[in-house]
């Protein structure tokens, strides 16, 4: 059972999105409430407003036959739901793989301290290189310390909670983000730009891939120019206006 947070926030309080309500109704129709994410169940139990949304939708579908629905995209798909746009997901995966590769190269070419040589045990034994030599041989495949490699990769892994939040929609203000695109590359000087029916000021928060805030900015216009250089990795950004979560996006810094 997946347990990601799939609530989103508006008007100061957390409420279930239309997708969450639909998922709960699916669970009721299919007798699978116990397989819902605990956070969703707990929220619904204590929130009369969301119970009203769930009950209202269920009431319309009470007589509908769901017995021959077939595999459910959430309950019967441990890999995750079928995405509406699979192509961007593949793009993101490819970008992540590329970013990890670039990160490894950057590390090897620029960041690796010369003194690391004597601590690194070469592992590329199948190339016929003299592995006893402390000096790198021309044409040899460098051996990356596994710990460092893991640390770099960790910075590019996605956050399940923020991914869920990102996929959830907002019921209130309409917001269109022009840049950055989901999964797009961002660097110092990049512009964050959006249009929304919500009025300024806006709070833009950049979070690392563990959900820790990296920076929060109070804005009085619908754009922000990133001034700081961020460490290579995967980041999320949240836009809040009128005390409502307007948007959650993801970007990469290389």
């Amino acid at each position: 059972m997946r347990t990601g947070i799939i609530v989103h926030f508006f008007h100061k309080e957390a409420h279930l999105s239309q997708e969450d309500v639909s998922l709960y109704v699916d669970a009721l129709k299919l007798g699978r409430v116990d397989q819902l994410p605990p956070l969703l169940v707990e929220h619904a139990k204590n929130c009369p407003e969301c119970q009203g949304e769930i009950t209202g939708l269920f009431s319309l579908l009470a007589e509908e036959d769901y017995s021959k629905t077939g595999p459910h995209p959430f309950f019967d798909n441990p890999a995750g739901p079928v995405q509406r746009e699979p192509l961007p997901i593949l793009k993101i995966a490819a970008m992540l793989a590329a970013a990890v590769g670039i990160g490894i190269m950057v590390y090897w070419l620029f960041l690796r301290a010369p003194g690391d040589d004597h601590r690194t045990q070469p592992v590329a034994v199948s190339t016929g290189i003299d592995t006893n030599s402390a000096r790198p041989q021309a044409g040899a495949t460098p051996a990356i310390p596994k710990v460092r490699q893991g640390q770099i990769a960790e910075r590019f892994t996605t956050s399940p909670g923020l991914e869920d939040l990102m996929r959830s929609s907002v019921r209130s203000a309409e917001t269109e983000v022009q840049s950055p695109t989901i999964g797009g590359t961002v660097h110092a000087g990049s512009i964050f730009r959006w249009t929304t029916s919500a009025q300024p000021p806006f709070d833009l928060t950049i979070l690392d891939n563990r959900g820790s805030p990296v920076g929060t900015y109070k804005l009085h216009s619908s754009m922000y120019k990133l001034k700081d250089s961020l460490q290579a990795g995967l980041y999320y950004w949240k836009l809040v206006g009128e005390e409502t979560l307007l948007h959650v996006g993801r970007f990469v810094v290389r």
Partner: peptide, 8 residues
């Protein structure tokens, strides 16, 4: 987002 049945 594909998590629920589209009909719902």
């Amino acid at each position: 987002n594909g998590m629920s049945l589209f009909r719902t």
